[in-house]
Lab assay of single mutants.
Amino acid sequence: DSWHDTVDGIELELHGADEELLKLAKELLKRGVSEEEVRRIIEELLK
């Protein structure tokens, strides 16, 4: 799946992010949310 590559990229960027955020990112990508949107959501949550 192409979203796996996206998640791997996000995981590299979010090496400090907790497991729950990564699960959320994967779930959003699986549901068709764009990579940009996922990054934006996670950045908001990390604030």
Rank of each mutant, 00 (worst) to 15 (best):
residue 8 D to E: 12
residue 33 V to C: 09
residue 31 R to M: 09
residue 4 H to Q: 11
residue 44 E to Q: 10
residue 47 K to L: 12
residue 29 L to V: 03
residue 29 L to Q: 02
residue 19 E to I: 11
residue 32 G to F: 01
residue 13 E to K: 02
residue 26 K to H: 08
residue 22 L to N: 03
residue 16 G to Y: 12
residue 12 L to W: 06
residue 10 I to Y: 09
residue 47 K to I: 09
residue 17 A to D: 05
residue 14 L to C: 04
residue 4 H to R: 07
residue 33 V to Y: 15
residue 46 L to N: 03
residue 47 K to W: 13
residue 44 E to F: 15
residue 36 E to D: 10
residue 23 K to N: 08
residue 40 R to N: 04
residue 16 G to L: 11
residue 42 I to V: 06
residue 40 R to P: 00
residue 13 E to T: 03
residue 20 E to D: 07
residue 44 E to S: 12
residue 38 V to E: 00
residue 40 R to M: 07
residue 25 A to K: 03
residue 18 D to L: 08
residue 33 V to R: 07
residue 7 V to C: 01
residue 16 G to P: 04
residue 34 S to A: 10
residue 45 L to N: 01
residue 21 L to C: 03
residue 27 E to Q: 14
residue 39 R to H: 04
residue 31 R to S: 09
residue 34 S to P: 12
residue 44 E to V: 12
residue 36 E to L: 14
residue 15 H to M: 13
residue 4 H to K: 12
residue 32 G to T: 00
residue 21 L to V: 09
residue 45 L to Y: 12
residue 25 A to I: 14
residue 37 E to L: 09
residue 46 L to V: 06
residue 26 K to W: 15
residue 24 L to Y: 12
residue 10 I to A: 07
residue 10 I to G: 07
residue 26 K to N: 05
residue 1 D to Y: 00
residue 31 R to G: 06
residue 39 R to W: 15
residue 7 V to W: 14
residue 19 E to H: 14
residue 33 V to E: 03
residue 22 L to S: 04
residue 24 L to F: 10
residue 26 K to L: 11
residue 30 K to T: 05
residue 16 G to A: 04
residue 10 I to V: 08
residue 10 I to M: 14
residue 24 L to S: 01
residue 21 L to A: 03
residue 3 W to L: 10
residue 19 E to T: 11
residue 15 H to W: 14
residue 30 K to P: 00
residue 11 E to R: 08
residue 43 E to Q: 15
residue 16 G to E: 08
residue 37 E to I: 12
residue 13 E to Y: 01
residue 40 R to V: 04
residue 31 R to L: 11
residue 25 A to P: 00
residue 12 L to V: 07
residue 11 E to L: 15
residue 7 V to M: 13
residue 26 K to C: 03
residue 7 V to F: 15
residue 31 R to K: 10
residue 1 D to L: 05
residue 17 A to H: 09
residue 33 V to T: 05
residue 7 V to D: 07
residue 28 L to Q: 00
residue 43 E to W: 15
residue 34 S to L: 04
residue 41 I to M: 05
residue 23 K to D: 03
residue 13 E to A: 02
residue 31 R to W: 07
residue 6 T to F: 13
residue 4 H to F: 12
residue 27 E to I: 14
residue 37 E to C: 06
residue 9 G to K: 13
residue 14 L to W: 08
residue 20 E to F: 15
residue 45 L to S: 02
residue 31 R to E: 05
residue 34 S to F: 03
residue 2 S to L: 11
residue 15 H to N: 13
residue 25 A to D: 00
residue 12 L to E: 05
residue 19 E to F: 12
residue 28 L to M: 07
residue 10 I to P: 09
residue 5 D to L: 05
residue 17 A to I: 13
residue 21 L to T: 06
residue 23 K to E: 08
residue 35 E to H: 14
residue 29 L to T: 01
residue 17 A to T: 08
residue 45 L to Q: 03
residue 18 D to K: 07
residue 1 D to T: 08
residue 30 K to F: 11
residue 19 E to L: 11
residue 18 D to I: 07
residue 11 E to K: 12
residue 44 E to H: 09
residue 8 D to K: 06
residue 44 E to L: 13
residue 44 E to G: 09
residue 41 I to F: 08
residue 28 L to P: 00
residue 24 L to I: 06
residue 8 D to H: 14
residue 3 W to A: 13
residue 1 D to P: 08
residue 14 L to V: 07
residue 9 G to Y: 12
residue 13 E to S: 03
residue 6 T to C: 04
residue 9 G to P: 12
residue 34 S to R: 05
residue 28 L to N: 00
residue 35 E to V: 15
residue 10 I to Q: 08
residue 7 V to A: 11
residue 23 K to M: 09
residue 3 W to K: 08
residue 8 D to I: 14
residue 16 G to F: 10
residue 6 T to G: 11
residue 44 E to D: 10
residue 13 E to V: 05
residue 15 H to S: 10
residue 33 V to A: 06
residue 34 S to G: 07
residue 31 R to Y: 06
residue 3 W to C: 05
residue 30 K to A: 15
residue 43 E to M: 15
residue 11 E to S: 14
residue 37 E to W: 11
residue 33 V to P: 00
residue 3 W to R: 03
residue 43 E to C: 06
residue 17 A to S: 07
residue 8 D to N: 14
residue 4 H to D: 11
residue 38 V to P: 00
residue 1 D to E: 13
residue 30 K to E: 12
residue 42 I to F: 03
residue 12 L to N: 08
residue 41 I to K: 02
residue 33 V to Q: 04
residue 17 A to W: 13
residue 29 L to N: 01
residue 46 L to H: 04
residue 31 R to P: 01
residue 40 R to W: 08
residue 7 V to I: 12
residue 21 L to P: 00
residue 6 T to S: 10
residue 42 I to Q: 00
residue 7 V to Q: 09
residue 9 G to M: 11
residue 25 A to L: 05
residue 38 V to D: 00
residue 33 V to H: 14
residue 6 T to V: 12
residue 47 K to P: 03
residue 40 R to F: 06
residue 27 E to G: 05
residue 1 D to A: 10
residue 35 E to S: 13
residue 13 E to R: 01
residue 36 E to W: 15
residue 27 E to N: 07
residue 23 K to W: 11
residue 2 S to F: 11
residue 28 L to I: 01
residue 2 S to I: 09
residue 4 H to C: 06
residue 6 T to L: 09
residue 4 H to S: 09
residue 36 E to I: 11
residue 1 D to H: 08
residue 47 K to A: 09
residue 46 L to E: 02
residue 8 D to P: 11
residue 14 L to H: 05
